[in-house]
């Protein structure tokens, strides 16, 4: 595939996404809802925000190394949206949440997110910068001791140093939700955190903690792309398999499909 073809596909993909975003927003406005994708963390986050309010303790929201102005800007924006809705839920508390980042360019975004979601009080100092990776993790564990957050939402760019933070939170009985766009961090999040999101769930997470139309519409768009992608991969896989089976013919495929559909329907009805 030459570069021009690739670019044409890229443009088409972006245009289709634009179309999907507007379509999803349209249906969202019309009040048409669809069942939310099952993301456990949504419920747990509600529980933590309630707990934080009632125990009069802050929440800690971590952006990690996600930096605005770099290739991860979009991830930073998605995280800010997710955090915005969480802060909104906990805005009845007397103590504003703490947003930490290890990328200085994300500090304005963090401050902005707290300021928008939280009215009154000193919100600027709630965005904290702790430089480095391991040094960041160490500083966060220090903060856990000093400020006793009720729970930690660690959604950002983390490496294995995530283990230090989650372990420390765990020992203090503080809950943790973790997700990382780096595979090393994601593995740690899965193994150690109370709740974890995986991959693009980070981008749909805002939709799971709020009924805000925009966030929900984004989640729908992601779901559509995801479904299309899975279907595409499956079709290609099946075609590849079929190529290696010369005895396969359409009649066989159709009859097996029909049997599977009938069985599927039967199981579905019984449930």
């Amino acid at each position: 595939m030459d570069q021009t073809t690739l670019q044409v596909y890229a443009v088409l993909f972006v245009l289709a996404t634009v179309l999907l975003v507007y379509t999803a927003r349209y249906f969202q406005r019309r009040g048409k809802r669809r069942p939310q994708r099952r993301m456990l963390s949504g419920e747990r986050v509600s529980e933590w925000t309630s707990g934080a309010i009632e125990a009069n303790r802050p929440l800690h929201l971590a952006l990690g190394g996600t930096a605005v102005g770099e290739d991860k800007t979009a991830i930073a924006l998605a995280e800010a949206e997710f955090f915005y809705h969480i802060i909104q839920r906990s805005s009845a508390s007397d103590i504003p949440p703490i947003l930490s980042t290890s990328a200085p360019s994300s500090i304005p975004l963090a401050q902005d997110t707290v300021r928008r979601a939280w009215s009154g009080g000193d919100t600027l100092s709630r965005a904290r910068w702790y430089p480095g990776d391991l040094a960041y993790a160490a500083a966060v564990t220090g903060m856990m001791e000093a400020e006793e957050p009720a729970a930690h939402i660690l959604a950002g760019s983390f490496g294995p140093e995530l283990a230090l933070m989650i372990d420390s939170a765990d020992r203090r009985g503080q809950g943790s939700l973790a997700v990382s766009d780096r595979l090393e961090g994601q593995a740690v999040a899965y193994a150690m955190a109370d709740e974890c999101l995986i991959g693009e769930e980070l981008f749909a997470a805002a939709g799971a903690v709020t009924d805000d139309g925009r966030a929900q519409a984004d989640a729908i768009v992601l779901d559509v792309w995801r479904a299309l992608l899975i279907m595409g991969v499956t079709v290609v896989l099946l075609l590849e398999v079929a190529k290696r089976m010369p005895w396969l013919n359409w009649a066989l495929v159709l009859s097996v499909s029909a049997i599977l559909i009938v069985f599927g329907l039967l199981i579905y009805r019984r449930r």
């Binding site: 939310q36 419920e43 529980e47 925000t49 309010i53 839920r89 009845a92 508390s93």
Partner: peptide, 12 residues
């Protein structure tokens, strides 16, 4: 409500 409202929802 997008999910079950929490205590914080009530105060929000």
């Amino acid at each position: 409500a997008s999910g079950p409202p929490s205590a914080s929802d009530i105060l929000e």
